[in-house]
Amino acid sequence: MGILGGEGFSLPVITQTEVVDVKITVTDNALNQMKKTMEGDEETHCLVISAQSGGCSGYLYDMKIIEKPDSQNFQIQNFEGVEVFIHNGDSSLLNGIELDFKDTLMGGGFNITNPNASRECGCGQSFG
């Protein structure tokens, strides 16, 4: 194992500490689409919007409908019964975003406008 696996040897873990109160907005189009996609599973499922490193501009958006996770580290907003979860770790990156949905054949789908982004990738999935 060498140096890192030595007995009694441990390094300080770095954690992200900046957590802000998140407030997001969802357009009518986006809300309608979310309801359609949920197909009545609003009681058990939620939409998680998150950010992860990568993409051309530094961070990538990620959106998933999943079974509601343990809410301990999430901030939750309810939009007419649809719950949107944002992890505390992403709060400073995603606070203030507007979620929209464009129903077009090209370039359509969910779209995020982020006031924290100083630049965005052409495809709209990456921001920095």
Binding site: V13, I14, S50, Q52, G54, H87
Partner: peptide, 23 residues
């Protein structure tokens, strides 16, 4: 390090540690 830590996806198993001064 800020870049590395801030971009960890909430559902990923990643821990970041600081080895400065020690290594």
């Amino acid at each position: 390090r800020k870049l590395i830590v801030s971009g960890i996806h909430w559902n990923e198993d990643v821990r970041i540690m600081n080895g400065d001064m020690i290594l």
